[in-house]
Design a protein around this nucleic acid. Structure first.
Length: 488
RNA sequence: GGCGCCUUCGUCAAGUGGUUAAGACACCGCCCUCUCACGGCGGGUUCAAGGGUUCGAAUCCCUUAGGCGUCACCA
């Protein structure tokens, strides 16, 4: 059987939309699951959209997502170059071939003039009015000798229809009258996407074209090209788009208004690359089992085309967050601390022990690293106190009672030499027992005085340890002062 | 507008003529608990609408509606 070869063919825009990443992932997974090759090809035929370093950006993003091309710019391969702008002579040659065989023609019409001025009823030609389609050899010669710029257009059949098979959608038929005499080669000598992708996919022996549904309607044009050349037609797999849901409930293609939409945005928000890949893999593909957490090797092993969905799916930040949390929980405290490094904002830079301890507390409490700074702010800066905070009905705590609890607690803490979580726990337990009060009643005022917050990551013991003896006592004492001043 | 694609809980989805219509996220409740989490247990919510075909339809057919895409010297 023929070796499976797929490709990911982005244009170098310096931005990796999550839908694009998913397309790349599926193309990669399919190739690898079939022991085939995955090719990276850069479609940079639009000079106006050239972005510096975009190729490096794409390669870095794929690397971060653990999608490794077998061939491509910088990866080697027998079909180089893999950057379309470096293949211009190839397209030129094939375009000329088509002109020779009568399937394409030179068009000297002025830049979009005819198209734009065409009355509506001429639109039925599909845009261009085909003015140059039947130019006489003399006219062509004349234009050529005058040095008039031209493009090469594909000569579409005037009647009939074109059918192609899509693995996900079955047979799709489009009437040839819908097809424009599209441009194959632009006046600057660059090919258009619709031409270059056909030539390259054939030359690079791509067997399965995996791309977005937005290409369905132009696929008949590609198919016609394959037929003109007498080339074998590859298998098509058109993927449904990734959608976003706006606050008003409307669903549309995932875009900025929905929040982070690129792989990089997501990384910056503090999601793990593995989690993003894992989540995205499941957005439009199901493994036919209830497993949801997959490593890349597992994904490759389990992937199959018939698990692909042909309907659009909405990107759910909630579920991504959950999945990311699953990865967090599976990490060691050390690894979490290391990955979350920059979100700790320099806290405990010189105390790996405390940093790891904090990581252990945080990793079950955040769904992305980006939530960390707000959560740990109080450790660095004490928030202003409010008497209200010292009142808690459920635990029967009042400001007065708080004084009675904090005062002896300060004394006990002052006597602790070995400031460790275990030691602290022991002393607090003894204290609770001695007072005969409920543990919640004791802890409430301490937490407030220590953090200024009703809600904290971890409990009083954890906070005491993280704050350290000096800072803890300082906060407890100023809490005491605060309460005493209030009652005066 | 023409053409094309799509339509099972709020979201991801299983399902291919006979099921109490899985599972997950989210949500709600309870338990655990010094707060918040974690963990455990339980709950509500779904076949776009209307016609057929059939003993029987989420599954097959038709119509309608809605969503999305496409109609570039962009990919």
């Amino acid at each position: 059987m023929e070796k499976v070869r797929t490709r990911f063919a982005p244009s170098p825009t310096g931005y990796m939309h999550i839908g694009n990443l998913r397309t790349a992932l599926y193309a990669y997974l399919f190739a690898k699951s079939q022991h085939g090759d995955f090719i990276l090809r850069i479609e940079d035929t639009d000079r106006a959209r050239y972005v510096a370093d975009a190729v490096e950006f794409i390669k870095n993003t794929l690397a971060a997502a653990k999608i490794i091309p077998d061939e491509g710019p910088g990866f080697g391969g027998n079909f180089a170059p893999y950057i379309q702008s470096e293949r211009m002579d190839i397209y030129k040659k094939y375009a000329e071939e088509l002109v020779e065989s009568g399937h394409a023609y030179r068009c000297f019409c002025n830049h979009g003039e005819e198209k734009n001025s065409a009355p509506d009823d001429e639109k039925k030609f599909g845009g261009y009015n085909r003015h140059c389609r039947e130019l006489s050899p003399e006219e062509i010669e004349k234009n050529l000798s005058e040095g008039k710029p031209y493009v090469i257009r594909q000569k579409m059949p005037l009647a009939g229809e074109t059918t192609f098979f899509d693995v996900l959608h079955g047979n799709i038929t489009i009437s040839n009258s819908e097809l424009e005499d599209q441009i194959l080669l632009k006046s600057d000598g660059m090919p258009t996407y619709n031409f270059a992708n056909v030539v390259d996919d054939h030359l690079m022996e791509v067997t399965h074209i995996i791309r977005g549904t937005e290409f369905i309607t132009s696929t008949p044009k590609h198919v016609l090209l394959y037929e003109f050349f007498g080339w074998e037609i590859p298998k098509f797999i058109h993927l449904a788009p990734v959608m976003g849901k706006a606050e008003d409930g409307t669903v549309s293609k995932l875009s900025k208004r929905h929040g982070a939409t690129s792989f990089n945005d997501l990384i910056e928000a503090g999601y793990l690359p593995e989690a993003i890949t894992n989540y995205v893999a499941l957005l439009g593909w199901n493994p036919k089992s209830n497993q949801e957490i997959f490593s890349m090797p597992e994904l490759i092993e389990k992937f199959s085309l018939d698990g692909l969905s042909n309907s659009p799916s909405v990107f759910d930040y909630n579920k991504l967050g959950w999945m990311n949390g699953e990865y967090f929980k599976a990490m060691s405290d050390e690894d979490f601390a290391k990955s979350a490094e920059k979100f700790f904002c320099g806290l405990y830079e010189n105390s790996p022990e405390k940093k790891n301890y904090l990581a252990g507390i945080l990793k079950t409490r955040v769904s992305r690293f980006g939530e960390i700074p707000d959560m740990i702010k109080f450790l660095e800066t004490m928030p202003p106190l409010d008497v209200e905070l010292f009142t808690n009905k459920r635990n029967k705590v009042t400001p007065e009672k708080s004084v009675a609890i904090i005062e002896p607690a300060v004394e006990i803490f002052s006597g602790i030499e070995n400031w460790t979580p275990d030691e602290l726990n022991e002393k607090i337990s003894a204290f609770v027992e001695k007072t005969g009060l409920k543990i919640g009643t004791i802890m409430w005022p301490l937490r407030i005085a220590l953090s200024g917050q009703k809600v904290t990551p971890g409990g009083v013991t954890e906070i005491l340890y993280l704050l350290g003896k000096e800072k803890s006592l300082e906060r407890l004492n100023s809490g005491l002062n605060f309460l005493k001043n209030i009652s005066d």
